[in-house]
Design a protein around this nucleic acid. Sequence first.
DNA 1: GTCTATAAACAGATAGAC
DNA 2: GTCTATCTGTTTATAGAC
Lengths: 213, 213
Amino acid sequence: MAEIRDTSPTGAQKALIDAGLALFGTKGFDATSTRELASTAGVNVALIAYHFGGKEGLRQAVVAEIGRRMSQVVGLPPVPAGLTADAAQERLQMVVRQIVAFLVGAREAEPLVNFMLHELAQGGPQIDAIYQRFVGPKHRELSELWAIATGLNAESDHVKLSIFAMIGQVVYFRLGREVVTRKMGWTAIGPDEVGRIADLIAGNVRLLTQRGT
Amino acid sequence: MAEIRDTSPTGAQKALIDAGLALFGTKGFDATSTRELASTAGVNVALIAYHFGGKEGLRQAVVAEIGRRMSQVVGLPPVPAGLTADAAQERLQMVVRQIVAFLVGAREAEPLVNFMLHELAQGGPQIDAIYQRFVGPKHRELSELWAIATGLNAESDHVKLSIFAMIGQVVYFRLGREVVTRKMGWTAIGPDEVGRIADLIAGNVRLLTQRGT
DNA sequence: GTCTATAAACAGATAGAC
DNA sequence: GTCTATCTGTTTATAGAC
């Protein structure tokens, strides 16, 4: 089995990872056969074993690729020191809009998100890799902003849980996309619908971080 | 293939559906073999084809069973006429706590929720059955309460979207259970943790439905 | 209704030519 | 590094005895 590099692979490896991203994301890992992966990638079946040691190795390479893409798509600029509560709240809303745009709006993210949903539902160890690489740091930065905006402690349980609740609001619109579309009478979730979802959640964040008088 | 009745099946059928509920929920549909289903149910493999026409038929029977169970577990008492805004808000918080208890807390719900996650991630037509039976009516009742509490129109997009955002807050704590547990430093999500999650989200609902002065 | 036995297709992995 | 051909085990589905 070849080593799994930390940089972007090329050629057959890249083609297989892209195929994995698409097929694992839509059909799930188990429902995808190696032959299907190979033909989608336009390469030979045997190359899966050659490059990744087997189907399981390809899955891990796909996870690594997802981590790489996510960290560059939703990378946050570092929180500047001495931010005022109002500025932090403003920034928080901006970040929410970014996350909505990525999770709900971006078509490129579709296989990524689908794949993660599958892994989440399965509860496998693959989540750990994504967590350490993406969710963990992200959550810390959001907590920091939330803390500044509300005047609470960033390490407090209340703040940490609030961040989860906030992310949940976004995730559900991706998760229950079909349900939302139908219930709202939309034909699809385009830029317009994404904007309205972002408006709502950003407004919710504003209300939730407003300090009681 | 035998007809799929609308009442609870018994004997081998019930055993197979229970096995499907457990195995499809934890491992996913495709990763579960018919032999595994049969041995878990304590019956013969051939009975899957006899009773359900095949593995796919069993899946549909499992979906039907989930719809049956959910509608009885989280059935809402009808919203009484002439509810005040305060009473509606109170009731809304109560419902939120029920949903948290069911989705996040109840161990019986684990395979149900896992199975739905798989189906959601797959985007298959199975979701429709669950939607029409459970999500749709539930969403309507929640919208009604939210509308009374805020004074807005229950059919307005804002209210409908708010309900999705509210449900999302709950769902994410189930979806990202491992992540939440780790981040919070919890060992597991027991009754105590469920209570704190319910407190947070109920509090959020209170803030979000409060009328601006 | 439930079983055994088996069929037919497919899975993932590998050996070896080029 | 990529291919063809093949091995071995497992899959779902079915035929037929009881």
